[in-house]
Amino acid sequence: MPGESVPQELVENLGRIVREIDGVTDLYDARPTPVAAVTSVAMRLTGRGAPEPVVVSSSGDGLTIWVSLAVSENHPAADTCRRVFDVVHDFVAAHVPEDTLRTVRIRVSRIG
């Protein structure tokens, strides 16, 4: 799903920095379930290991970033979610031109 214009390091680095954010306990594959299953099988078959959970998709009108998280119950989940947005936004804005970022979708899929 990632477009050709998205550097792989950006995707990998995003996964790493999100995991380091206080209150984030896990990252899930952010693709819709059936797509995720097919992608996961395809990547294993081609020997590329598990897919990066953070999805960066590129289309005509810019970049969309999808992240699905598990967060700790020791921090307010809504705050953790906003903190993840801020970190992702700042990181990507430092690597791509300002106006190419269209949507950053952060979803809390599990608390505690």
Partner: peptide, 30 residues
């Protein structure tokens, strides 16, 4: 578990490009 994610519960953020949410499944777990 994603098959039980349910509805998407939005979270507020001032940025126009932010699409933040908690899944209904996560809230049920909580």
């Amino acid at each position: 578990s994603e098959s039980r994610a349910g509805r998407s519960i939005p979270l507020a953020h001032p940025s126009s490009i932010a699409d933040l949410s908690i899944s209904e499944g996560a809230v049920r777990g909580l």
